[in-house]
């Protein structure tokens, strides 16, 4: 490109603001009196006051309940995603490096992966009933695949020369695994974790829609039945917001623990 990097960065940031501003303006104009009726699309102002009431207000049934619902959802994401990571990372690293592990695991995993995650919903409801366990099952299942696949991909593509360097410096098999292969696979692994975390939020909503008492997905479903479009949209916004926060936190923690080298652009 002709622009230098710094100019480019500033321009990119400005470019990022353009579309939201246009959409927001259109939204504002269309929901003025006499425009789109509020039961289809509430105005920005109405939505904002509903959101504030949800967070810190007192109007029943939703006023001030954001915290409990968020905690319930976050807990499910952490548990479900945590399970996926606890299984996906070690299995991924093993299949990435050990022929026998790959031969015995990979075909089956990819066979299961072909089945769309959503289609596990009915059978999960038969096995686990509606609610909590089904939600955790769906999240773990969906998040497992990207975590596993990317960890395996990262581990299998570590430069053999880097491994030689580790060996001649005196590292044994185990140390090669922990001090060369795992750190060298981190960029790919992090990509998998981010995909998995994103899917966790998606499947959280799917699970919660089936019927739990607390949770942002539950609020969404509940509000829809009451015809409260504002709350449906507000819940969507908060889910997106927390999803993004969790993604940023994941990347930040990787940087903090030195798992990403400096200058890696994410």
């Amino acid at each position: 490109m002709m622009l230098n990097d710094r100019e480019n960065d500033v321009n990119m940031k400005l470019a990022g603001f353009f579309l939201p501003v246009v959409l927001f303006t259109l939204w504002y104009i269309f929901t003025l009196d006499g425009g789109v009726p509020a039961y289809l699309l509430p105005s920005p102002g109405d939505l904002a006051s509903t959101g504030i009431d949800f967070a810190i207000g007192e109007n029943p049934p939703y006023g001030g309940t954001l915290f409990v619902h968020t905690m319930a959802s976050v807990q499910r994401v952490i548990t479900g995603f945590g399970l996926a990571v606890a299984l996906g990372l070690p299995l991924g690293f093993l299949t990435g490096r050990i022929g026998l592990a790959r031969a015995s695991l990979d075909p089956t995993v990819h066979l299961i992966r072909i089945v769309p995650g959503i289609s596990w919903l009915p059978i999960a409801m038969v096995w686990f009933g509606v609610g909590e366990t089904t939600t955790l099952f769906l999240i773990s299942l969906a998040a497992f695949f990207p975590v596993y696949v990317n960890a395996a991909q990262g581990a299998s593509t570590v430069s053999p020369m880097l491994i030689r360097a580790g060996r001649m410096l005196g590292a044994n098999d185990l140390r090669i695994f922990t001090t060369v292969i795992i750190p060298a696979s981190m960029p790919a692994t992090l990509a998998g974790l981010r995909l998995g975390l994103g899917l966790s939020w998606a499947y959280l909503v799917l699970g919660e829609l089936t019927g739990v008492t607390y949770g942002l997905g539950a609020v969404m479903m509940d509000a829809r039945m009451l015809g409260n479009v504002d709350m449906v949209l507000v819940s969507m916004i908060f889910i997106g917001f927390f999803g993004r926060i969790s993604d940023i936190a994941l990347v930040k923690s990787f940087r903090k623990f030195g798992l990403l080298k400096n200058g890696d652009r994410i």
Binding site: M168, G258, L260
Partner: peptide, 13 residues
């Protein structure tokens, strides 16, 4: 028998 390779092969992390 320490080796110095053609490329430095440092651990980038």
């Amino acid at each position: 028998r320490a080796v110095v390779f053609q490329s430095p092969l440092l651990f980038p992390w």
